[in-house]
């Protein structure tokens, strides 16, 4: 009974929060709603008996990803007036598409449920003698080692991509080079100048 109530509350909150993520015009609010959605999804995982996944969701998605989003969004120069401009123009069309999708999904789900299709699907096997972490650990590096390694490669590509697209070696940037820094002496480091009053010294003139 309590589990059912908890499920419906969490499910309703996550659907509502997900809607607000899309509909909120302020991106900061969107991210905060996203965190709410993650939290309630984590609650749903707990109800299913997957405590480890719930914890991962909170630690990784809420703790790291969403906070990172928040930083990025706050650093963006967002023009809220401009954001709202397109909204009314595209909303009717978007609403029509969303309604069609929703109606289709309800129709099909109803048809499927009427024939009792879902009952035949083999559910998740509950191994009662092992903990969540153990159950995942048993298959992650054995049955799914191929996918695990391939996912690692996907991350490698993402890293290479980030470096290819953003790393620039600018000539005037001062990087740490311990050898040259330590072997510097007074002759190289000091320059005596006699600037005119009010003119100042530009660093380029000294080098």
């Amino acid at each position: 009974m309590i589990a059912a109530i908890a499920f419906y509350v969490l499910a309703a909150v996550s659907v509502f929060a997900a809607l607000r993520v899309v509909l909120a015009s302020n991106p900061v609010h969107s991210v905060l709603w996203l965190i709410t959605a993650f939290f309630s999804a984590a609650g749903l995982f707990v109800l299913m008996g997957a405590e480890f996944l719930a914890m991962l969701l909170v630690v990784v998605y809420v703790g790291a990803v969403a906070v990172l989003f928040l930083f990025v969004v706050m650093m963006l120069d967002v023009d809220f007036v401009k954001l709202r401009e397109g909204f009314t123009r595209y909303m009717p069309f978007g609403a029509v598409v969303a309604c069609i999708l929703l109606v289709e999904m309800i129709l099909i789900s109803a048809a499927v449920a009427a024939r009792g299709a879902g009952a035949h699907a083999p559910g998740v096997q509950h191994a009662t003698d092992v903990t969540n972490v153990e159950a995942i650990g048993r298959v992650l590096y054995t049955d799914y080692v191929y996918i695990f390694q391939a996912a690692g490669l996907v991350l490698l590509v993402a890293m290479i991509g980030a470096i290819v697209l953003t790393l620039r070696h600018r000539p005037h940037v001062k990087r740490q080079d311990i050898h040259t820094q330590v072997t510097r002496d007074r002759k190289k480091a000091l320059a005596m100048t006699r600037p005119e009053t009010g003119a100042g010294v530009r660093p380029e003139d000294l080098v």
Partner: peptide, 23 residues
């Protein structure tokens, strides 16, 4: 379906970078 998805992602991610290669 998992290897389908991971394969597609590995390929696409590399292609996105190649498309923007001349940054």
């Amino acid at each position: 379906l998992i290897s389908l998805y991971v394969g597609i992602e590995l390929q696409s991610l590399a292609l996105y970078v190649l498309a923007a290669f001349n940054r």
